[in-house]
Structures are given as C-alpha cells and as structure tokens.
Design a protein around this nucleic acid. Structure first.
Length: 301
DNA sequence: CCCCAGGCACCTC
DNA sequence: GAGGTGCATGGG
C-alpha cells in the first residue's frame, strides 16, 4: 500500500473534496462506508478504481482519498503515482482564484463561490462520463450514481485493495457484453438501449476523444452522434471530462436560475440561451460558474 | 394514487 | 427549426 498527502498550504486556493465529488458532476466515485482500515481513522474516504488505460502505470489501480485538513488531501493507493491520478481527475492544477477572477461577479455567483469554496470541476475518464450522463436524463442524482455502481459491479473488473473489493468502470469492450435486457435489469429503464447503442458505436471506432481538437460548438454537435446524447448531455461530457470549461450544461436547475437571475439570457432555443449564458459568465470559464451555481442551488442555501 | 427526476428520440408541421 | 409526446423506474 502506498500513502501520501497533497498539500495546498503554499497556494492561495484549496479543495473541498465532498463538494467536488458529491455535487452531481461525477458519478464515478464512491463514498467509503464502514471501518475498512484498521491502521487509523476511517472516516471520509472516497474511492475509485481505474482501468489501466486511465492510469500512469498502465495497470488497473485503486485510489482512496479524503480531506485531511482544509488545505490538505490524504490518499492511499495501489500505486505510488496516485497523486498524478488525483491531479488529473480533480483538476488540482486549476488555480481557483484565477478562475473566479475571470468570471463576472454578481450576487448569485458571489454566494456560490463563497458557500462552495474549494469546489473543482472534475475530469472524468471519457467513456464512463459519457455513459453516466446518458443515464442521467430524467433521473435523480443519487440514482444516477447507483446505476453506475451497478454497471461497475456487473461489468467492470474487480480489484482487491487492502482486503476490500473495488470495481473499475467497464471498458467499451466489457460493457458491450451487456445486452439491453441486462441493462434494464439493473434499472436503466429506457436509457438501456441508448447505452447499448452508444457502447456499440464506441466499440466500432467512434471514440469521443477524437472530437477533442474541435471548436466547442462543433464538439458539442459531434457528440450528439451518440444515442442518448443531446445538447445537455454533450455539454456535461465536454465540461466534466473533455476539458471544455466554456461548456454550460442547461438543465432544469440552471434553466430556472436563468429565469430568476439572468432573464435576459433566456432565449428560444438551447443554442441561443447557451450562447447568452456563456457570455454572461465570461466565456472561456463559464462552465466553472455553472458548476458552482448548480451545486449551490441544488443543495439549498 | 399522483408527481417528479442534471432530457432525449421521434414524430409532425 | 420549432413544437409536442412518450418514455422506465423508484422515491416522496
């Protein structure tokens, strides 16, 4: 077992791990339940198991992380390179003060920044992100997470770490072994066929990462070639996985926020409203503003 | 019993 | 392109 800390004490920003992992932008992390460690305290850990394509070691790894202090993370892992993994997945390199400085401040933004201090946009692996947001339509956040847990347990790879079992998210090839019926059996409902058909497209060579160099709006349109991916899900994949920080997913929460706080941005189509609200939030980092507002509003103030 | 959930595909016009 | 419908499932 490898262990380490990641300290923010020599920087001006920090991280709020629970806000980052439990605000509905990623469904791939699990909050660890129970006394899984005997060697020290066991509260507050989050876990993820990564398939080898997504690790610096090229082998599957488990990473556990928790908030040790306000400006410090603590991790345990199967690899000594867990810090590299965490920097990527949690965007620890982002300078939150610089980011907030580029977003026009108003009352709502100010409250969200202050209430959710340390919240970071995540960078999920692309395929798991794509599938989990296909599952997200008309579904509560807790259940979306539950669906991903089922998908991992049924079709992912089990990895043991310190006496406990963890499951990677299935690769496209692994998930393609699931039939539509299998997916319905784990509660995906009408999304089962979307997941099945999208997985099939990925297995047959349509990798979402091939859209990485595209201009934002082109990438958003391109992602909609997958089944179950409309404007909103495409924006989620762009923002929470592909690093398009200007993407602003327009969901029910953000749309009601627009009606209430930015009525002049409301327009007749997703396309136009999206353009307006991105401009309102300062353009290139608008997605960060969206993530703070979503997290702040959803939790209630 | 009804209503709703980080929308989307599909069908008209 | 804009506008309306049906949609699986579980929890309140």
């Amino acid at each position: 077992m490898f262990k380490g800390d990641i300290s923010f004490e020599d920087r001006s920003d920090n991280i709020n791990l629970s806000a980052t992992l439990e605000s509905g932008q990623t469904f791939l992390w699990d909050r660890v339940e129970g006394e899984i460690f005997s060697d020290d305290t066991y509260d507050g850990w989050y876990s993820i198991a990564l398939e080898g394509k997504h690790t610096p070691t090229n082998t599957s790894e488990v990473v556990l992380v928790r908030q040790k202090e306000k400006d410090q993370l603590e991790w345990k892992s199967t690899t000594e390179k867990a810090d590299i993994i965490l920097y990527r997945l949690l965007r620890l390199g982002d300078n939150l003060n610089a980011i907030q400085g580029k977003i026009p401040v108003d009352d709502l933004i100010q409250k969200a920044f202050s209430e959710k201090s340390g919240l970071r946009v995540v960078r999920d692996p692309v395929f798991p992100c794509l599938i989990s947001f296909i599952c997200s339509s008309q579904m509560r956040i807790e259940r979306i997470h539950g669906m991903q847990s089922e998908i991992k347990k049924e079709f992912g790879q089990e990895i043991e770490f310190d006496g406990n079992a963890y499951y990677t998210y299935p690769t496209p090839e692994q998930l393609s072994k699931a039939t539509e019926e299998d997916l319905k059996d784990i509660g995906l409902g009408y999304r089962a066929s979307y997941v099945e058909r999208t997985t099939e497209k990925v297995v047959h060579g349509k990798d979402p990462r091939q859209f990485n160099g595209l201009e934002y709006e082109d990438a958003r349109n391109a992602l909609q070639e997958f089944v179950g991916v409309g404007d909103k899900v495409a924006d989620c994949v762009l923002l929470f996985s592909m690093g398009y920080l200007e993407a602003v997913p327009l969901d029910t929460w953000i749309n009601s926020a627009i009606d209430k706080h930015y009525p002049s941005c409301s327009a007749s189509s997703y396309e136009k409203t999206s353009k307006n609200i991105r401009e309102q939030f300062g353009g290139e980092l608008a997605g960060y503003a969206q993530t703070y507002i979503f997290s702040y509003l959803r939790e209630g103030d």
